[in-house]
Design a protein around this nucleic acid. Structure first.
Lengths: 249, 249
DNA sequence: CGAATAATTGACTGAGATCAACCCCCGTGG
DNA sequence: CCACGGGGGTTGATCTCAGTCAATTATTCG
């Protein structure tokens, strides 16, 4: 077969794992839900956010911890996952800059339903949930945007349920790769590189299969020329053919 | 085995399939997201809503139809589902009075991602999506409540993904019955009756299994005394034991 | 009562999990 | 610079859960 090069996914993280202070207002203003607010409003909002940095692999919070904070991804990728007592992990979502996670409920006495973990080095902005709620109260246009984002997330979760309920492993994997390509795709050597270090194991956790099945399926897709991949990376090389696999075999 | 009586689920629907006009303001005011608004505000909001009635089994909208309207359930149960091209259905959620469905995006050119179908006779209030958005603009406190409800829905969907990804069929079914018991449970003869006509087939569609597997598992649960059930109904008779099955077998 | 729909039960089969061995990178340190 | 170690990936053999196909029995309704 063909030689497999080093991962084309850019693995160089932010040097310090903290955001630079001078960029904070810019980052805040570019968050979808604060986009378009006056700089005065941003200054005020800024005072309530703190910046937090995480190394790749670091856990931001654990499922079951008291849910007190809200986070917005400024740089890097964050994965949301749940743990089964069998030891198996379920990867619910991978968040990119501009997306949010954590709790937006002002009430205490709730726990995070899932674990948030930095997938790459991450810079995030964080705020107490109750304070974020107050902010949304003051800037209703932001609340509506958060609502839209939430609706999209719900729809994506439902698509996930659909995949898991009605597709075979091979189709689920194809379909999930396509979804990742849409969200994280970067053009690369004529293909669509999924721009994220993604192990076979994680692909399995996203698709409700085992590492072995994910690996076998990826190999088979490579043999058919649908994708290209190596250690921790995958690129789609034949989009249409992959789509056709996703649809029925 | 023991004689199986008629379904204890109340199947009597609302007589006319239309809500009575005089109740509309009361219903509107009791929607979680309009709760607490002034009667003046409700009067104004009322003008934008229309009442719609559906017979049990009737489709409210189909997946793929242009998404122009937002609905709130006033009475009855609505199921949200998706169809696989294999013919298989995936039952995403069952909505009870106070919950909403449809589109809340003001933008045209979107399609409903799923099908909404009346599970029982249903009375719903409906409004054009763009107008609903305008209403949320004017009553930001309502927007925040819709946001909370949406967050709950997202969490429920993620739990569903978790079940489908990490549990065996038997556990998924037990766990889904428990969830249904929480949401739709009514005390009945010492057990928790799931107050909704629910066929084995629908249970299968909720749990990513087949009718046969759902039926076998239900029979087995009955034999162990965990539940009681018949045509289109199920009641939980041993909550703790069912929980223990859901958790690991 | 009889037709239609829902549920049950059995036999068979196959997709994919499990168990196990091995390879291939890639970074590290002697 | 090379040996080594470990994490990620691959591949094979086996086994089992649940899907499929098929026939039969309940239950409801016209």
């Amino acid at each position: 077969m063909k030689a497999r090069r080093k991962s084309p996914v850019d693995q160089t993280g932010i040097e310090s794992q903290f955001c630079s202070i001078d960029l904070r207002l810019k980052i805040l203003g570019e968050l979808p839900f604060f986009h378009g607010l006056s700089s005065q409003a941003l200054e005020e909002i800024n005072r309530h956010f703190v910046e937090v940095g995480y190394a790749a692999g670091e856990v931001i919070y654990h499922a079951g911890d008291p849910a007190r904070r809200f986070y917005a991804v400024a740089d890097g990728k964050v994965k949301l996952l749940q743990h089964a007592l069998s030891g198996r992990n379920v990867l619910l979502d991978i968040l990119i800059p501009g997306e949010f996670f954590g709790s937006l409920s002002p009430r205490d006495a709730m726990d995070y339903p899932d674990t948030a973990q930095a997938q790459t080095p991450v810079c995030a902005l964080s705020i107490n949930s109750a304070e974020f709620r107050t902010t949304l109260d003051r800037y209703p246009e932001a609340a509506l945007i958060v609502l839209d984002l939430m609706a999209n997330r719900l729809q994506a979760a439902n698509e996930n349920v659909f995949r898991l309920s009605s597709m075979e492993a091979e189709q689920r994997i194809a379909s999930t790769l396509l979804k990742l390509g849409e969200k994280l795709g970067r053009s690369h050597e004529g293909g669509i590189l999924i721009d994220l270090p993604l192990s076979r194991d994680e692909l399995a956790e996203m698709t409700g299969t085992t590492t072995e099945t994910a690996s076998r399926t990826v190999s088979q897709f490579q043999a058919k020329g649908l994708i290209q991949g190596g250690r921790q990376w995958i690129a789609i090389t034949d989009l249409d053919a992959l789509k056709s696999v996703a649809q029925s075999g």
